[in-house]
Design a protein around this nucleic acid. Structure first.
Lengths: 342, 342
DNA sequence: CTGTTAGCGCTTTCAA
DNA sequence: TTGAAAGCGCTAACAG
């Protein structure tokens, strides 16, 4: 079942059949109707491999994400999917599980498949082979969540956001504020957020604490509990992401600490689920869907104009503090984000 | 940059270059080394559109899921991704948002892209155009979570699972057990689970309650709260999935009810997150990753043998009761699943 | 072990 | 408005 069959049955050449679908206005109305009828009757579906091979355009955007087990990326992907669909693009999401080699392999596959553009969340944009490859092949790409001067990025000012929220915790009387993070080397976001924590503590004249690094998902609750059992335990925990914040709350409960009375817990990401928990998660709200949308828009615009997005297209979006019940922060008068580009 | 360039630079014919990658043993060792060197140096990446067009095989499996915002599908996808990778397949996950038309559109795209097989979670296998299309085009496919006699399915016996857990609630003294579900028409799982609920209530001689149907995610907490405010409120809630169970717990808190003391809440799915919540979610644990794995294995086996999976390949996997803290169920002596196929 | 060549299904000039 | 034909990049006979 291919274009030839349709042509034969409809009584026209394959060129006309092709045109009937790709440039209907160039075909006689009756001819078109006839061809459409036959195509439908035969259940004809154009072979996209052939189309892509011939036209060198796929109308596909590749999407590289660390994982979909963290809802923050699922929400972002939702935004990507909707925006892509609205712009007439398909997407191919692939998860890397924070493996750099997987990022590279995926980008290779994307190039082989002639994707029109790529949207990525990488571990470390600074020395990413995947990005180098994309650049060398002149394929439009945009980073989400990452931030680096050499690449087009769509993200929030994480460092400022963390500094802000740590400041708020201090305002509420907290002096012993610790930070919980996944493996720092695995993500530049974690690093940015850690920098924000250190900066804020320094500015506040508070003694920062050793980072509570919990690389292995499965055991993180236990690992956090250990820290909470110490005599010099912190009174507030800033967590590098909401999933860790959820686990921290659990760890507090396991340790006989009440949240937020005995321990304040603040997350980062603003996953929707956090609002349905008890206590409702206090967190830095990123515009996750919007970030996806903006990335797609950037890519689609570039594609339409035939140019590559560069660092000059970087967009820093607004974040906000979502005040829940997991921390003794009472009001949402968050300082204005320090940087903002539109 | 294509095979021709590599051939020219390496000083061999394109046929030899092709063979060097696809059938290395048929090429002289030195020739191969030379070709590999040149290919690497030029950054050659074979054009998969051309390969697929020529060979009619893509080593790609299409994956149709309702949403990735529900972690149950993200976990399943994780299993799919790992199994596919292990079998040398790529996957292309697409979400339908429970839209039947989107299922059909997606399957068409998959067919156009020459996927080797398709793995789906559909709304209603009984009259699915998407499945009909797949069948008519002779494309191997397997359903996950769905259950229907005409199709190859990998799932658990939801009906029995629900009946079991409702029975346990009754054993613990509950007489007023209500069920919370998303829009029933949107998923045959919800329907199976509802049947299980009704069956169990009937067998227990208990009066079943009107289904608490909360079609719109955003407002579900409020909708559930309304039901909990009634004077004849239930003492136990069986929720069609874990996300609803989480929201039910929140609704209970909002209503001044303590879980599980005043209200028992049981979920379905066994998402990992549930174990990190307070109270830990009591839920029916499905082998989500395993289901993904089994689906891929089924597909890969069929592909290897050149035959289509049929209803006879259906596998009903084991579920279990995960006893958390959200319900007054004290022990895990769950009856053996009523049906089981291996 | 290597090269020649036909052709996968489609789009797109170009000519009629 | 339609058709003939070249060719996208690759694979797989087949011949040597």
């Amino acid at each position: 079942m291919n274009i030839k069959d349709v042509a034969r049955v409809a009584g026209f050449s394959i060129a006309t059949v092709s045109r009937a679908f790709r440039a209907p206005e160039k075909v006689n109305v009756h001819t078109r109707a006839q061809i459409e009828r036959v195509a439908k009757q035969l259940g004809y579906i154009a072979n996209s491999s052939a189309q892509v091979l011939r036209t060198r355009r796929s109308r596909v955007l590749g999407v590289v994400l660390p994982t979909l087990l963290n809802p923050v990326f699922a929400e972002c992907l939702d935004g990507i999917a909707r925006a892509a669909h609205a712009s007439g693009y398909s997407i191919v999401p692939v998860t890397t599980d924070y493996q750099v080699t997987s990022e590279e392999r995926t980008v290779q596959t994307f190039i082989a498949a002639n994707v029109d553009g790529v949207l990525l969340v990488v571990s470390n944009p600074a020395d990413s082979l995947a990005l180098r490859l994309l650049k060398s092949k002149q394929i439009p790409y945009v980073l989400a969540y990452n931030l680096h001067q050499d690449h087009p990025c769509v993200t929030v000012d994480s460092e400022a956001a963390v500094a802000d929220v740590v400041g708020q915790l201090a305002d509420c009387g907290h002096r012993h504020i610790a930070m919980v993070s996944g493996h720092l080397a695995q993500s530049d976001r974690a690093q940015q957020r850690y920098r924000g924590y250190l900066k804020a503590m320094r500015q506040l004249g508070l003694q920062h604490r050793d980072l509570i690094e919990v690389p292995f998902m499965a055991t993180s609750v236990a690992q956090i509990s250990v820290q909470l059992a110490r005599s010099d335990r912190p009174t507030a925990l800033f967590c590098s992401n909401d999933l860790l914040a959820i686990r921290s709350v659990r760890a507090a409960n396991d340790s006989g600490l009440r949240v937020p009375d005995d321990l304040s817990v603040v997350g980062f990401d603003g996953i929707e689920l956090g609002m349905d928990l008890t206590p409702r998660l206090t967190t830095i709200q990123q515009p996750n869907r919007e970030m996806g949308r903006v990335c797609v828009r950037l890519l689609a615009d570039s594609l339409a104009r035939g140019l590559l997005p560069g660092p000059e297209h970087t967009q820093i979006l607004d974040y906000s503090l979502r005040v829940g019940e997991s921390a003794t922060i009472t009001d949402a008068h968050m300082p204005t984000p320090s940087r903002r580009t539109k």
